[in-house]
């Protein structure tokens, strides 16, 4: 069904959450458009018809007209009440998660999205979901405010550091959808993107099984997976380029000058401290922007990450 303002909205991949929103958006935009055209025509018509002929023009005294004024107050009021009710019901639907929803935990942190699945699988910046089944995301931030937004599903909610928030949707077509962060969160806010990957239901089960159980392999391999999963690479390059933090390449064993002028050798203890409490010793030329990982990585995981960093010569 083609509507006048269809070109404004993105694809609708989750009709259960998007249909009411879209309908209301079209309704308001179309009514507004008609009224705007009416007002514009009136403006232009009056400007031409009643153009000043001479400085001595006389105009009639029209102070007010109760019927007209009451009608153009009450009719818009009624229309807006309809809009309110429509918007309210659509919003209630967005807030009411179906009982059989599949639950995924979301960790937002500068500037990545981490997703944890019930069987222990973890992904970074890729949200895998089954098609045709409601999915509930339980979200929390580890640092500042973020906001989870998928335009194709018409869902959005802020992600806060001190409480859980949630959204739900049900994707109806296999494929991909874009995730944005819509609450300003600093330098790389605009790079805090992720993809929803929508699988056929059985394909999703297979994907879960192959990726379940978290990281595995030798310490170095585990470290490598952790560096990816924890989003370290967003700020620390592996090839020597300077992004937001110092590059990991050749980092271990190097002498670094700190912001207070003192020097430090990058050893196991320095790396450990920098992961748990990054603000303690900041390398000169970099800002103190990293989120502390205290409570987010275990001692074993830190050891594995250090083993991996040693291999990046």
């Amino acid at each position: 069904m083609g509507r006048l303002f269809d070109f404004m909205l993105p694809d609708n991949q989750s009709p259960l959450t998007a249909d009411s929103t879209d309908g209301l958006f079209h309704f308001i935009t179309e009514v507004s458009f008609i009224l705007l055209v009416g007002i514009t025509i009136a403006l232009i018509y009056f400007a031409i018809k009643y153009k000043r002929k001479s400085e001595d023009d006389e105009t009639p005294l029209i102070t007010h007209n109760n019927t007209l004024e009451i009608s153009w107050s009450v009719i818009p009021l009624l229309i807006t009440l309809v809009i309110f009710g429509w918007g309210y019901s659509g919003w209630l639907n967005l807030r009411s998660v179906p009982d059989d929803a599949y639950e995924i935990h979301v960790n937002a942190f500068k500037w990545n999205w981490g997703f944890n699945y019930s069987n222990g699988a973890q992904t970074l910046n890729e949200l895998h979901v089954p098609k045709g089944r409601p999915v509930k995301l339980v979200m929390q931030s580890r640092d500042v405010l973020h906001s989870f937004f998928v335009p194709d599903f018409r869902v959005k909610h802020d992600v806060l550091p001190n409480r859980y928030t949630y959204v739900w949707f049900q994707a109806e077509e296999a494929g991909e959808a874009q995730i944005f962060c819509t609450e300003y969160c600093g330098t790389s806010h605009s790079n805090m993107l992720a993809k929803v990957i929508i699988h056929e239901p059985d394909e999703f089960e297979t994907w879960l099984e192959t990726n379940g159980g978290g990281v595995s392999g030798s310490p170095v391999e585990q470290g490598e997976q952790l560096v990816s999963l924890q989003g370290c690479k967003t700020c620390h390059s592996l090839d020597g380029t300077k992004i937001i933090g110092p590059s990991f390449k050749g980092l271990f064993g190097k002498q670094e000058t700190l912001s207070d002028g003192s020097t430090v050798t990058v050893d196991e203890n320095y790396i450990r401290e920098s992961i748990l409490n990054p603000g303690a010793k900041v390398v000169q030329g970099y800002d103190n922007v990293m989120t502390p990982y205290e409570g987010r990585v275990s001692d074993d995981e830190i050891s594995n990450i250090i083993e991996y960093l040693k291999t990046l010569k």
Partner: peptide
């Protein structure tokens, strides 16, 4: 003003907020 009405509608604002 009209786009303000669009943004005031709850469900539509969820989609349009901060865009």
């Amino acid at each position: 003003g009209f786009t303000g009405i669009t943004l005031g509608a709850l469900s539509v604002d969820i989609h349009l907020h901060d865009t």
